[in-house]
Design a protein around this nucleic acid. Structure first.
Lengths: 239, 239
DNA sequence: GCAACATCTTGATCAACATCAATGATGCGT
DNA sequence: ACGCATCATTGATGTTGATCAAGATGTTGC
């Protein structure tokens, strides 16, 4: 399991700088590295299910993971997306409660699992870790509060644009010929679940965005924004 | 400012057991007590405004405080209510960001203000305080996530019932003659802002609840639930 | 390459809620 | 107690998005 600081080692993992393990001393880092479990996962595979007890924490090294909740009527809502450099499942681990969401792999992913006993040791021995988790929790709470306001306030069109902008930030690049090109890493139904709307509504809204000249869609997995300013105007300058 | 463990002292404050200062040593407690500022506030008074920089933390000793956010179109949404035993404004203090909501007193309240330099000292010298704030933040994030799901999923009627049940838990008592009587501590417009609906919709929904026999309203500030089971049935047993 | 299946789109209809306008209640100051 | 201002209710109408049903477009396995 321990490759001596090879390409799979936590010590040299470039994503670690984004995580709560950022300031970890070498000693603790090697502890993590010795005990971590690497997994390569395909879309549709499950990290954990709603209702499960937490066994540890999941580090996303590559790929994309979504946290999904099923409501009483069986609708699934995508509560959040986790990109590389994110630890998934820390809330339930720290609060010792069962998972309230399921975590599902949305793209080919490389995920490391760290057992709760190891995390416990890190928190006890490295004060920075606790602080990082506090900051992370504060940020998550604030993001959620914003989404909460957004859902009550603005319509599907603006919310869809917002989600598309998130994809653009992460997967986009500028093609001087056509504009800002980016991938949509999820299926339409998941895009719908992310926006909090029915798939049919997403279809109609994307068509409307094309008619407005805000976004062009190339098939179902790619899109182009010819003019970013028009989009900012629509959603109110602040992203 | 310092009364020797009189009725206004933090040392003997009964609400403290509910706050992050719960396990504070006497020494630190007296530090807080020496530097806290007591204020008696009337409905409508403001603790802080959206956009202000955080100067410290607010302890609710008595009364009721609401956090309100104004969206782009000027709608105000009541993001959360804070009851006695709650510290308000900790997120912005710890993340060193400007307040994203305004805090407004909704009922006659007794609020203590603690300057950020004191809070800083406490966190540095008393490890339990940081942990308490972490727990608090985790809980807030989880509550928000639930509200988020709720807003997308269930209708105004169920959401209103949910809010009424919160009031019942806090202000209610059983009158064997008529049923479970409780006060509604906010005006209709604020009840609307809390549910995330227009005041007109709240009017119509309350009328519907009366027609269904779920809740009777006595004026605008009091209500009666003749049969709790009927309400639980409507919102799905879990509260 | 084609069948079988899942996914996406389109159209028609419906329910929920917002908005606007008017009226009725309540409270507050002098 | 009166008048004014704020707040709450009611009705009429408009908008948004969900749902249902059907067709179109992929996608996978053989």
């Amino acid at each position: 399991m321990a490759d001596e600081h090879g390409p799979n080692s936590c010590v040299t993992c470039p994503r670690r700088q984004l995580t709560e393990w950022r300031n970890l001393e070498l000693e603790h880092l090697e502890l993590v590295n010795r005990h971590k479990h690497d997994r390569m996962l395909k879309p549709g595979e499950i990290l954990f299910n709603q209702g499960d007890e937490s066994e540890g924490i999941y580090c996303i090294k590559e790929g994309l993971v979504g946290e999904r909740r099923l409501d009483a009527e069986g609708h699934s809502i995508l509560v959040r997306l986790s990109h590389p450099g994110t630890t998934v499942g820390y809330q339930e681990l720290l609060s010792k409660r069962p998972f309230r969401n399921s975590a599902e792999v949305l793209q080919d992913s490389h995920v490391c699992f760290i057992n709760k006993s190891i995390v416990q040791q890190l928190i006890e021995n490295s004060p920075s870790v606790g602080q990082r988790f506090l900051r992370r929790s504060l940020k998550d709470a604030q993001d959620l509060e914003d989404s909460f306001i957004e859902v009550q306030t603005i319509g599907v069109k603006a919310r869809l644009l917002h989600v598309l902008m998130i994809f653009y930030e992460r997967y986009g690049h500028l093609d001087p010929e056509v504009g800002h090109v980016f991938d949509i890493p999820v299926a339409r139904r998941d895009l719908a679940a992310l926006v909090g709307a029915a798939p049919e509504t997403i279809s109609r809204t994307t068509r409307q965005l094309e008619e407005d000249g805000l976004v062009q869609f190339r098939g179902v997995r790619q899109a182009i924004i010819p003019n970013l300013d028009l989009v900012f105007e629509e959603i109110g300058t602040d992203i």
